[in-house]
């Protein structure tokens, strides 16, 4: 795995400048992430990578920081798309896609990096409220009239399939504090990472309480020859078809010229 470094513009100034003057009144903590680039191009041979995001805490309480009671969760969320989940059942001995459930606005990918295991950071309820973590993401069914049991079953299957495809991943310990207020998060990009606008979000927790969120956008696009082919196939599909046919005819003709035996 190669490492893509989207370096953050780190806001270091807050602590050093503000500390002496405002030491008396406790300040609310904040969190910042910034990406040095707003677009990442991946090439044809892309086989997955780690994306490093840097960020900083604003006004951290030195005591809390020393005790390690600040936790950060960083999420890289792919563009939302509708998805159909289908279940195979046996019909006359043959496995057939029978039931299906459509979900709206499902993030195509969802990579999480955390300072500690999720269950150690805060309560399950606050994850639900924040819709944070692959297992707490709210999946909205297109047809809400289906029975809750069915929706739950297909939601679980959707998460499981996404995780199996490497699109939903969790990197415990992927966020590390480099100093009292500077941290580095490593999120995983799957080999089949979807193109489009991804959203990087950082959540700050202090002693199990959610404090603040910050987000930044990242455009992931594929580059190179293969991507041009893909674009032509979709934007100029008729010409692409004509090209595919001509290529086949010329190959057949050349093959005959080169290898003719009669």
């Amino acid at each position: 795995m190669k490492s893509l470094k989207a370096l953050a513009a780190v806001a270091l100034l807050s602590l050093t400048a503000a500390a002496p003057a405002k030491a008396q009144t406790p300040l609310t903590e904040g969190i910042q992430i910034g990406l040095s680039t707003d677009a990442v191009s991946i090439t044809a041979g892309f086989s997955g990578a780690d994306l490093t995001i840097f960020g900083s805490l604003e006004n951290p309480d030195p005591l809390v920081a020393r005790q390690g009671r600040y936790d950060v969760i960083v999420v890289l969320e792919g563009p939302p798309k509708p998805v159909v989940v289908r279940r195979k059942d046996r019909v006359l001995g043959v496995w057939v896609n029978l039931d299906s459930e459509t979900f709206e606005n499902v993030p195509v990918s969802y990579s999480v990096a955390t300072t500690r295991p999720l269950q150690d950071i805060t309560e399950p309820n606050s994850y639900k409220q924040l819709s944070l973590g692959a297992s707490n993401l709210y999946m909205q069914p297109a047809d809400a009239s289906d029975s809750p049991a069915t929706i739950e079953e297909f939601t679980a299957a959707l998460r499981e399939r996404k995780a199996a495809a490497g699109l939903y991943s969790e990197n415990v310990g992927g966020v590390q504090f480099l100093s009292q207020n500077l941290f580095r998060a490593t999120v995983r990009l799957a080999p089949n990472v979807p193109v489009g606008t991804h959203k990087a979000r950082a959540f700050l927790f202090k002693s199990g309480l959610f404090i603040k969120e910050s987000s930044a956008q990242l455009e992931i696009r594929k580059s190179g020859f293969e991507q041009s082919i893909f674009r032509v196939a979709h934007d100029y599909s008729f010409l692409y078809g004509v090209f595919a046919i001509s290529l086949a005819m010329i190959t057949g003709w050349l093959g005959r010229l080169v290898f003719r035996k009669d």
Binding site: K81, V83, V84, V85, L158, R161, K162
Partner: peptide, 8 residues
């Protein structure tokens, strides 16, 4: 895998 995903 009994379940499969496809784009809409």
């Amino acid at each position: 895998n009994l379940y499969s995903l496809s784009a809409v």
